[in-house]
Nucleic acid binder design. Structure first.
Lengths: 160, 160
DNA sequence: TTCGTTGCAAAAGGTTTGCATACCA
DNA sequence: TGGTATGCAAACCTTTTGCAACGAA
């Protein structure tokens, strides 16, 4: 069971109901191991022949976010991208500007630094958002060779 | 001369014209030493009796951003906030979630870490966005005393 | 006179919400 | 049966754009 599903079935308040739509959203989201937007997730579901409304997708993602099962970033256009969070707390990702693939990076240095920040500044409840982007090795190589390296959707999401 | 004005008058391509509206936007923005949204800046201008269109404000801020004279962050709602950049390259800020005031923080540790990230991952052109928020000492104290600490607009912006 | 700039209104794009309907428990 | 979830459409917000009029150089 993925952490997304675990979060949904366990950490959720009483009174929630299991429906065909939520299950489909969760399944598709779980199969998508990289960042996806709500719009893209909805497109994937539609493509797969699952009739789910866009607002339902938004609502499901919002609920997951509340439970703390997803990491959220904003892309350059301000669109929110969701990714299921690996067990063990929040992570930061290095996202390829070209193909959209992401990889979690070790941010212990930054975490420790951020923790100390409160003491130094007198601020309480310090939170941080860190977004990293670059061009991955594959895309960099492809670009050098004059190819068309950019994909719209991360590969991990296309096979749902 | 503030860095914002310097950027505008010096670093700008030939062919740009000085107009009453741009001057007003720049002056008000320069007087605002903290993050402001385009909407808020427009409101300040209107309040001050300067008739400037909203699109003009957006265009002016976009130009400043191009020239590299401003730091931009997104607030929780996704709205873009602009702040004139102190001389010496990009900075990161710790913003009070309560009153909106921000202070630049020393991020050398993070900068160095981010620089090394490229080598470790094979990514090129690594860029980072770091947003920090917390509750400042003033607001924390006010909250303890049961006051109403939260202001809509940072103090530095209210006196324009 | 030239052509960059302005301002209005409309468009665009993502996200949220209202409300009647569907359906889980 | 009661009440939550859904889905559609409309509302919302911020930001961008089209275009005619304006005005700096």
């Amino acid at each position: 069971m993925s952490s997304a599903e675990a979060g949904w079935t366990e950490a959720v308040e009483p009174g929630v109901r299991r429906t065909r739509q939520r299950a489909a959203v969760l399944r598709t989201f779980a199969a998508c191991r990289d960042f996806v937007s709500a719009q893209a997730l909805h497109a994937l579901l539609t493509e797969a022949g699952v009739g789910v409304g866009l607002s339902t997708v938004y609502r499901a993602l919002r609920d997951l976010e509340r439970v703390g099962c997803v990491d959220v970033v904003r892309d350059q256009t301000g669109e929110r991208l969701y990714r299921q969070r690996p067990d063990g707390g929040h992570r930061h990702y290095l996202i390829c500007r070209c193909c959209g693939r992401s990889r979690a990076v070790d941010t212990d240095v930054v975490e420790e630094w951020a923790d100390r920040l409160g003491e130094q500044t007198g601020f309480t409840g310090v939170e941080h958002t860190l977004e990293l982007s670059g061009v991955c090795a594959d895309c960099g190589t492809a670009a050098e060779q004059g190819g068309a390296p950019c994909r719209e959707v991360p590969p991990s999401c296309r096979s749902t």
